[in-house]
């Protein structure tokens, strides 16, 4: 069953057409990535799904109900951790639930412990490293009650090693909770390593140029990144992005 469907959505700002006839869907418990070059309107897509912008044409439905212009229908993890500096880690994690009006402290404490951030439960964000802050931001999104989580290039500001750690950590959590995730990235490897399906976007005005089912079984290990099959898929996507047929 599709949790989220985007049908024929177009959006323009003045004369600038950013999105044209975008179609994609995310099924329950699926990890879907949107892969596109910089400036392909990925943030616009998120703002549309998040209800901050309304499309000029097309439908956006969550569990068969239109969510156009309704903010808070999805759970969100932004590019920067965006933790509130005056709240402790526990209070920050509860924020997503607080905005929706239902708080589950025990669950939050449990998740923070599972993420290995036990000793930082009552610390302030500035005491944490970049990777730890992103974990907190993800837990906050995971604990929010909405049926789908949007992740907006969450690891793009991290260094290479921390990023791989974070990707493995995210896969672990995903395996044990199976949340429905829509993930935006411009990193091909990241998309392949994490997702079930990948939608490749064109340059502006962006639309889906290719939809790819990721063939690797789960759970996935880091070694996968160097396997031939992985590199083959990477090449396919690379050429799709370049706008040529795959070799």
């Amino acid at each position: 069953m599709s949790i989220l469907t985007i049908e024929n959505v177009s959006k323009r700002f003045g004369d600038n057409e950013v999105i044209q006839g975008l179609c994609l869907d995310v099924k329950a418990g699926e990890f879907v990535s949107i892969l596109g070059p910089s400036g392909s309107g990925k943030s616009t897509i998120f703002n549309l799904v998040g209800g901050l912008l309304t499309p000029d044409e097309g439908k956006i439905q969550l569990q068969n109900k239109s969510i156009i212009g309704k903010n808070g229908s999805i759970s969100y993890m932004p590019q920067t951790p965006s933790l509130l500096p005056w709240r402790t880690i526990l209070q920050n994690v509860l924020l997503g639930q607080e905005l929706q009006g239902e708080i589950n402290r025990e669950k939050a404490i449990e998740m923070i412990e599972k993420a290995g951030l036990n000793e930082f439960m009552h610390s302030y964000p500035h005491e944490l490293s970049g990777g730890m802050k992103q974990r907190v931001a993800f837990i906050r999104a995971l604990l929010s009650p909405q049926p789908i989580i949007l992740l907006d290039e969450p690891f793009s500001a991290l260094d290479e090693l921390t990023r791989i750690d974070m990707q493995k950590w995210l896969l672990d959590i995903w395996d044990s909770h199976k949340p429905t995730i829509l993930f935006v990235t411009h990193n091909i490897e990241e998309a392949l390593f994490l997702s079930d399906r990948i939608f490749v976007l064109s340059h502006r005005p962006s639309h889906v140029i290719s939809e790819l089912k990721v063939p690797f079984s789960r759970p996935r290990k880091e070694e996968l990144l160097l396997k031939d099959q992985f590199l083959e898929s990477k090449r396919t996507i690379h050429f799709a992005l370049k706008g040529r047929d795959s070799v």
Binding site: L52, N71, Y76, P78, S82
Partner: peptide, 12 residues
């Protein structure tokens, strides 16, 4: 702005 954007996306 990033904090405001997060809050609004999260439904504030």
């Amino acid at each position: 702005n990033e904090l405001k954007h997060y809050m609004m996306m999260a439904g504030a």
